[in-house]
Amino acid sequence: TGIVNVSSSLNVRSSASTSSKVIGSLSGNTKVTIVGEEGAFYKIEYKGSHGYVAAEYI
C-alpha cells in the first residue's frame, strides 16, 4: 500500500512507460494497493484492473 504524493493529480497509465496511454488519474493523498514494480513504475490495483504510476510519486 502506498499514498499518492502529489499536489494536483497523478496519471495512471496502461503500461510502465511515460509514452503509454493515460487511463485515468489519482488525486494527492489517495491510498493505492501496489501489486508489482517495473522499473520506475509501480503496478497498482485500479478500477477492478491494473494500472501503472510513477514510483517517485508514491
Rank of each mutant, 00 (worst) to 15 (best):
T1R: 08
T1M: 11
T1V: 14
G2R: 07
I3W: 15
I3D: 04
V4Y: 04
V4N: 04
V4R: 03
V4S: 06
V4H: 03
N5C: 14
N5L: 11
V6P: 07
V6W: 07
V6C: 15
S7R: 10
S7I: 11
S7Q: 12
S7D: 10
S8K: 11
S8M: 11
S9A: 11
L10M: 06
L10G: 03
L10F: 04
L10A: 11
N11R: 11
N11V: 15
N11K: 13
N11H: 14
R13G: 05
S14E: 15
S14V: 13
S15R: 09
A16I: 05
S17P: 01
S17C: 10
S17I: 05
S17G: 07
S17D: 14
T18N: 13
T18C: 15
T18S: 13
T18Q: 12
S19W: 08
S20G: 14
S20M: 03
S20Y: 07
S20V: 04
S20C: 05
K21V: 11
V22M: 05
I23L: 09
I23H: 01
I23V: 07
G24T: 02
G24H: 01
G24P: 01
S25M: 14
S25P: 04
L26K: 00
S27A: 14
S27E: 13
S27N: 11
S27T: 12
G28F: 14
G28Q: 12
G28W: 12
G28P: 15
N29W: 14
N29E: 07
N29S: 08
T30I: 07
T30Q: 11
K31Y: 12
K31D: 05
K31F: 11
K31C: 13
K31E: 11
V32G: 01
V32C: 04
V32Q: 00
V32I: 08
T33N: 10
I34V: 06
V35T: 07
V35L: 14
V35H: 04
V35C: 08
G36F: 04
G36H: 06
E37G: 07
E37W: 13
E38P: 01
E38I: 09
E38V: 10
G39N: 09
G39L: 05
G39I: 04
A40S: 12
Y42H: 02
Y42K: 04
K43L: 09
K43V: 09
K43M: 09
I44V: 05
E45S: 07
E45W: 10
E45C: 14
Y46R: 00
G48Y: 05
G48V: 03
G48D: 09
S49F: 10
S49I: 11
H50R: 04
H50P: 05
G51W: 03
G51N: 01
G51A: 10
Y52V: 02
Y52N: 00
V53N: 01
V53P: 00
A54Y: 13
A54F: 14
A55P: 02
A55F: 07
E56W: 07
E56S: 09
E56T: 08
E56C: 10
Y57R: 06
Y57P: 02
I58E: 01
I58M: 04
